[in-house]
């Protein structure tokens, strides 16, 4: 069976896997973004807290994803839970780092001006600092998503959802006639998803970054 026939036969399964893959990455990204920006907002003002947050998240990234999932299984069991936890943790790093860098990069004289015209602490954050720091934060989110696309494939190891199952099945049956097709289909699927997500981010950027600060 050649690759195209394989796709034709298995498209139902492949689409389900692709959907679950995308869905897992998307949901984890939403959670990672909320937590990441929150950590950034809470720590950027303090030298040591900001650095601590960045270092902690970097450290997480140095743990191989397979090992991380392996470590999580005994604690939370198999399936969706270790996948979600691992993806969210990995997704945090670029977002936290860019949120801190972005918020620290806001011109102090603008913050001064915001205070000076009588904006409250919350108004300053939501109307001035976050919108100005938004482009780097969005870049962080984009980088995170790309990374999670690949890491999500590993989740199949813990019986997680997604295109990783296709790849693991292929690797497990190396030598059989469909092994290569399976690995190829899983890998290409991930690449296509990654490109689609990236296109979506370009669109989001267009819609949410003010024309006044768009480069």
């Amino acid at each position: 069976m050649n690759f195209w026939d394989y796709l034709g036969n298995r498209h139902q399964q492949l689409l389900t896997d692709a959907y679950q893959h995308a869905s897992a990455v998307f949901q984890c990204m939403v959670v990672a973004t909320l937590i990441g920006v929150l950590i950034g907002v809470l720590t950027y003002r303090s030298e040591w807290a900001g650095n601590l947050a960045t270092t902690a998240t970097s450290t997480i990234l140095t743990i191989p994803s397979l090992a991380m999932i392996g470590l999580l299984i005994p604690v939370v069991g198999l399936g969706v839970a270790p996948t979600v936890i691992a993806l969210t943790l990995y997704g945090l790093l670029p977002i936290v780092r860019n949120a801190i860098v972005g918020l620290r990069g806001v011109d102090p004289s603008l913050v001064d001006a915001a205070k000076g015209i009588g904006m409250s602490r919350a108004a300053r954050l939501f109307k001035v600092e976050l919108p100005i720091a938004w482009p780097p934060i969005l870049t962080g989110i984009r980088v995170s998503t790309q990374m999670l696309m690949g890491i999500a494939a590993i989740a199949a190891y813990a019986s997680g959802p997604g295109l990783g199952n296709e790849i693991f099945r292929g690797i497990g049956s190396l030598g059989s006639k469909n092994a290569l097709n399976q690995v190829l289909a899983g890998t290409l699927g991930i690449i296509v998803l990654a490109l689609l997500f990236d296109a979506a981010y370009v669109l989001i950027g267009r819609l949410t970054i003010s024309r006044g600060i768009r480069v």
């Binding site: 001006a113 009588g118 600060i213």
Partner: peptide, 30 residues
Amino acid sequence: PVKLRRKVGYAIQSSGLFPHMTVAQNIALV
């Protein structure tokens, strides 16, 4: 202080305009 500052206009050297807002939005803030 927030209440005080709304009675007191403040203009600084670098103009302090918010780059992501239009001229009209900047002026409309207070």
